[in-house]
C-alpha cells in the first residue's frame, strides 16, 4: 500500500467527563482517502474520540478535551477555529438515523443552503441529486423528493443521512456505528457506499462488528478502557495482533 497523506494528526489526546478520564493519552494519525475503523468494547471511548474530531463534544458541558488534534496541520482546538466551520469540513453520521422532519429534498439541501454552496435553485437541485446518487438512494426516492424523510425505511433513512452529510462536501466523514440500527441488507448497502466514499473522503467509522471493520476498513484502531491499544493496517490487526488484549478481543475472549 502506497504512502498516503495524513489528514488528522492526534497527539496526547485526553478527554475528561467531569472527573472521569475517558480517553487516556491517545496518539493516532488518520490517512486521507482511507477508511479507518475504531473497534473496542462498549464504553472504551471510541465514540468519544470520534466526537473529538469534529468537536461535537463541545455540546456536552462537562466534557474537557486536552492534547493536540490537527486537521491538515491546523489545531482544531485553537481558539481561532470556529467549530461550526470545522463541522462543515468534518461531517458526521450518527448511530440512529436522524433525518429532520422535513422533505427528503430539504434534508439533503439543508447543509448546502446553510453554507451557501449553491448559487441558485438549479445548482441546489444538482447538489441534491448528486448527493443522493452518491448515497445510492436516488433511484429509490427520485419520484418522491417532497415526501417527509421520516417516512423512509431505516436503511433508507441512514443513507439519506449519509447523503445529507456528503452534500456539504466534507473532507472527512465520521460515522458512529452507522449500521447498528440496520438489518443485514441495509448494512451491506451502507458498507458498499462507504467503500465508494473513500475515493473522495477520509472515512472514520466506529463499529461494534469486527467483521464490518475487517470488510470496510484499511486501518483499524483498537481501544480498550480509554487507551488506544493497537493501531495498524486492518489486515495486520486481524491476522497478526501484537497486543494480547487485541487478540483476546478479536477472537471473542473479552469484550
Amino acid at each position: 500500500m502506497d504512502q498516503k497523506d495524513i489528514k488528522f494528526r492526534c497527539h496526547g489526546v485526553q478527554v475528561y467527563y467531569g472527573d472521569t478520564h475517558a480517553i487516556k493519552d491517545v496518539d493516532v494519525d488518520i490517512e486521507d482517502k482511507t477508511v479507518t475503523a475504531f473497534i473496542g468494547p462498549s464504553g472504551c471511548g471510541k465514540s468519544t474520540f470520534l466526537r473529538c474530531l469534529n468537536r461535537m463534544n463541545d455540546t456536552i458541558a462537562s466534557c474537557r478535551v486536552e492534547g493536540d488534534i490537527r486537521l491538515d496541520d491546523e489545531d482544531i482546538y485553537h481558539r481561532d477555529v470556529d467549530p461550526v466551520q470545522l463541522r462543515a469540513k468534518v461531517g458526521m453520521v450518527f448511530q440512529k438515523p436522524n433525518p429532520f422532519p422535513k422533505s427528503i429534498y430539504d434534508n439533503v439541501a439543508y447543509g448546502p443552503k446553510i453554507h451557501g454552496l449553491a448559487k441558485n435553485k438549479a445548482g441546489l437541485d444538482e447538489i441534491v441529486e448528486k448527493s443522493l446518487r452518491r448515497a445510492a438512494l436516488w433511484d429509490e426516492v427520485k419520484d418522491r423528493l417532497d415526501t417527509p424523510g421520516t417516512g423512509l425505511s431505516g436503511g433508507q433513512q441512514q443513507r439519506l443521512c449519509i447523503a445529507r452529510a456528503v452534500a456539504t462536501e466534507p473532507e472527512v466523514l465520521l460515522m458512529d456505528e452507522p449500521c447498528s440500527a440496520l438489518d443485514p441488507i441495509a448494512t451491506a448497502q451502507v458498507e458498499e457506499l462507504i467503500d465508494e466514499l473513500k475515493q473522495r473522503f477520509s472515512v472514520v467509522i466506529v463499529t461494534h462488528s469486527m467483521q464490518q471493520a475487517a470488510r470496510v476498513s484499511q486501518k483499524t484502531a483498537f481501544f480498550h478502557l480509554g487507551n488506544l491499544v493497537e493501531y495498524d493496517d486492518t489486515n495486520s490487526i486481524f491476522t497478526n495482533p501484537q497486543d494480547p488484549r487485541t487478540e483476546s478481543y478479536i477472537t471473542g475472549r473479552i469484550g
Binding site: 469534529n54 461535537m56 455540546t59 461550526v84 466551520q85 470545522l86 463541522r87 462543515a88 469540513k89 461531517g91 458526521m92 453520521v93 450518527f94 440512529k96 436522524n98 433525518p99 429532520f100 422532519p101 422535513k102 439543508y110 447543509g111 446553510i114 453554507h115 443521512c161 445529507r164 452529510a165 456539504t168 465520521l174
Partner: peptide, 25 residues
C-alpha cells in the same frame, strides 16, 4: 437531541439549528 446533533454535525450554528430544525419539528 439526535436532530440537534445531526444539524450541528453538518456545521449549522445554534440559531440555524433552532430556526430550521428544532422549531419546525
Amino acid at each position: 437531541q439526535a436532530l440537534r446533533d445531526g444539524s450541528f454535525g453538518l456545521g449549522a450554528t445554534k440559531s440555524e439549528t433552532i430556526r430550521q430544525v428544532v422549531l419546525p419539528a
